[in-house]
Amino acid sequence: MLQKNQFSLQLVEKHSVSASSLELCFRRPDNGIITYVPGQFFSFHLPEAAANKTRSYSVANRCHNIRENRELRITATLIEGGHASEFFRQAEIGVEVSASGPFGNLILPPQDPARYLLIATGAGVAPYRAMLPQLSERLKAKPELQVVLLLGVQNPAELLYADEFRQMADEHDNFCFRACYSQAEAAAEDEVRGYVQTQFADLQPNTEHDRVYLCGNPAMVDDAVKQLTPLGFTPANLKREKYLFSRL
């Protein structure tokens, strides 16, 4: 039985988006509209097969008209032995789960700064993918606006949505994508070796014109905050969301 503020979702599509990640697409059984703001997340209340666990996933939709949106796409990283990972790995098209939301404030503000620094590791890049239609409109309207997206993964096989981010960079001179590999050498012009937070020295974040977003591995988020706080960044211009991975 659904609890208050919960609604049903039905799996309609599932495919791999990296060596260890799945993209899953859900619709409401009544084909109703699913309302959210790009950057927000939903909590999934998994059934007994997943030990009655609740897991939160950012919306990964690349939707141009969210007022009529009827899909909820999420990106799930598969953890060996994880209850949620095993549930999604084995889930067949048509299975139903319950969800609640949307939640979170990792969203774009009404007024743009001079530059967005979007920092992610792994599936933490999902909310930035959801922001692409919004960002494209703003970049076209404001040629002076700059957007830098850094995605940290172990190696190229773990890259998520890189083709879409690279296409965005091709279409907008004021959008920059950079893949950061912790366990592989860089082979392309937009790739570097090292963790995403090691790129701050090159980017020179400045509170006067930057708004920073952090999403992904808690260690990355904590390390980045330690570097940015002494520079004067506060919750007003530094938004963060940690992705916790659990086998329980």
Results as ranks from 00 to 15, higher is better:
E92M: 05
L108R: 10
S100T: 14
I79W: 00
L46F: 11
A99I: 12
P47G: 04
T75K: 00
E92H: 07
R55N: 14
R73I: 07
S43A: 10
G94W: 09
T77A: 15
G82P: 01
H83V: 12
E71A: 05
G101L: 15
R67F: 06
A49F: 02
H45Y: 13
N65F: 03
E48N: 04
I74G: 04
Q90P: 00
C63G: 03
A84E: 05
E48I: 06
E96L: 02
E92T: 14
S43K: 12
N52T: 01
A51C: 11
E71F: 13
V59A: 13
V59I: 13
A51L: 11
T54C: 15
G82V: 03
E96H: 04
E92I: 12
T75A: 08
C63P: 03
E71L: 03
E92L: 14
R70A: 03
I93S: 03
N65I: 10
R89L: 10
H83Q: 12
H64Q: 12
R62N: 11
V59F: 04
A49P: 01
F87L: 03
Q90D: 04
I74F: 09
L46I: 06
L108H: 05
E86W: 00
T77G: 15
R67D: 11
H83D: 07
I79G: 00
A60Q: 07
N65K: 08
V59C: 13
C63F: 01
G81M: 03
E86Y: 00
E80I: 12
A84I: 08
P47V: 08
I74V: 15
E86P: 00
S100H: 10
C63I: 08
E48K: 02
G101P: 11
S58L: 09
I93K: 09
S58D: 08
V95K: 00
T77Y: 14
T77H: 14
N69C: 10
G94Y: 03
N69T: 02
N105I: 07
K53I: 15
Q90S: 06
N61M: 02
F87W: 12
H64A: 13
N105R: 15
N52C: 01
Q90F: 01
I93G: 11
F87P: 00
A49S: 11
G82K: 01
R55T: 13
S56C: 13
H45Q: 10
A51I: 02
N52I: 00
F44Y: 08
F88E: 02
R73C: 09
S98P: 01
G82Q: 06
E92F: 06
A91C: 10
G81P: 06
P47R: 07
A76P: 09
S56P: 02
N61E: 09
A51Q: 14
G94F: 11
T75M: 04
H45L: 14
S100A: 14
S100G: 13
E71M: 07
G101A: 05
N61W: 06
V95D: 01
L46A: 11
P47T: 12
R73W: 08
A50N: 05
G82S: 10
S98H: 07
S85I: 04
H83P: 00
T77W: 09
I107S: 04
I107G: 05
L78K: 10
